[in-house]
């Protein structure tokens, strides 16, 4: 089973690296935001796999948190890209 985790971890890492490249390279900001969102997902997987490997349950909170933040972060960036601001000051 351990081997399986390691292999998965390896695969996820490759995608992580690829995303990182996209994050660095750009070229547009939108690319980067998408990359960041995807990185969030890969991070969740990585942490999950890691906690399986080191056999601890204490990182479950971290995983949950990461997914929440990834969601919010992506939403914020998306809004920022679209409107140039995050919060609307006036009621719609």
């Amino acid at each position: 089973m351990m081997t399986f985790y390691w292999v998965s971890l390896f695969i996820v890492s490759i995608s992580f690296t690829g995303l990182l490249f996209r994050l660095v390279k750009g070229p547009t900001v939108a690319d980067r935001v998408v990359a960041l969102d995807a990185i969030g997902v890969t991070l969740v997987s990585i942490v999950a796999l890691l906690s399986l490997i080191i056999e601890t349950e204490f990182f479950l909170e971290v995983i949950l948190l990461m997914s929440i933040l990834s969601f919010i972060g992506t939403a914020a960036f998306a809004k920022f890209l679209e409107r140039g601001e995050i919060f609307d000051r006036d009621p719609r």
Binding site: V29, R32, V33, L36, L43, I46, V47, G73
Partner: peptide, 16 residues
């Protein structure tokens, strides 16, 4: 924006 995102990436790496 890139700089800020990259800073975020550094922060997340540190979290990792």
């Amino acid at each position: 924006l890139t700089a800020i995102i990259a800073l975020g990436a550094v922060g997340y790496s540190i979290a990792l």
